[in-house]
Nucleic acid binder design. Structure first.
Lengths: 182, 182
DNA sequence: GTCTATATATTGATAGAC
DNA sequence: GTCTATCAATATATAGAC
């Protein structure tokens, strides 16, 4: 029993990682359960055994991916607010993040999917996002600034990925890495 | 001939308006051609006659919707940069815009779909977005600030729509309407 | 230019074997 | 827990009538 639970949990994490990569790259609504399962090396039956439905998979994906993002932002607690922000802007608004959505943050890839998902899913996302904002606000000493930081980085990544040329992508990234704002 | 062209153009605009509303509300990849056509009061055959393919419809949608957004931003050329920005932040980051994606800006709704579309589509979007940025930059007197403005409003709307509660939605909107940024 | 009918593929989900 | 097989529904797209 305990052994089985251990396996189940480990396998679940593994499926979430692989399905998450595929969903972030190709979109959640736009990708079928079969494709999500195939990317994780299983068939659809396995995904249904773990998550019950496609909606259930999205819920689990949101929790898993957002916890991962929050863990990244939580590092280096000794830094000054300005140094932390400069470093996080550089890390998040990077060329690699534009080019590899499958390895990146859930929000620029799937926030629009979440916005169209049932309320239960949006509550899960809200809980995770609020925690992230609270953690960042504590660091920066300002709640509004934390929301502005999150909005800016997500918006910049969304726009950069939607344009065709590397030049304009870099323009968007660079403009948002520098400080400013009226 | 001239009469027929006139009808065609008018009907095309009409189809774009209705299909655009449905696509913004329900997602482009997530919505079938039949649903897009039905929302416009026609059948799929009519959409194919006008746009050739689903991809062709998205291309036309991007042009049409972005030109509409640019026209909104272009109003009130006599205002001071600060007054213009304050007014545009209030207009864009409004409760109504969160609640009615079908009436709102294409970007928070469909940028993720565009990011996954063929390069031709992304080039069309890039052209429109670059024009918008240039127009805003001329007004604000700063190119980077124009990118930051666009990133911030798109990101804030994307996040606000993805959370469940009106309270957190309002938090995000309010924080991004006030000035600030490091 | 728009309709209906249709072709082929894929969707989310379930049942039963192992 | 995962597979294969299968369901009804829906996907994009095309053909031919009007």
């Amino acid at each position: 029993m305990r052994y089985q639970d251990g396996y189940r949990e480990q396998k679940r994490k593994e499926l979430l990682k692989q399905a998450g990569e595929t969903a972030k790259a190709r979109g959640f609504a736009a990708t079928g359960i079969d494709a999500l399962a195939q990317a994780a090396g299983v068939t659809s039956g396995a995904l249904y055994a773990h998550f019950g439905s496609k909606a259930g998979l999205l819920d689990a994906l949101v929790t898993n991916e957002m916890e991962r993002s929050r863990a990244r932002w939580a590092r280096r607690p000794e830094q000054s607010p300005d140094a932390w922000m400069a470093e996080e802007l550089a890390r998040y608004l990077s060329r690699a993040h534009v080019d590899m959505p499958e390895k990146g943050c859930l929000m620029p890839s799937l926030a629009a999917d979440i916005a169209r998902a049932p309320e239960a899913t949006r509550r899960i996302f809200e809980d995770q996002l609020s925690r992230a904002q609270a953690e960042i606000a504590e660091r920066l000493g300002d709640a509004d600034e934390a929301w502005q930081f999150l909005s800016r980085i997500v918006g910049a990544m969304v726009l950069a990925r939607a344009v065709a040329s590397v030049d304009v992508q870099d323009e968007i990234l660079k403009a948002n890495r520098t400080s400013g704002g009226r």
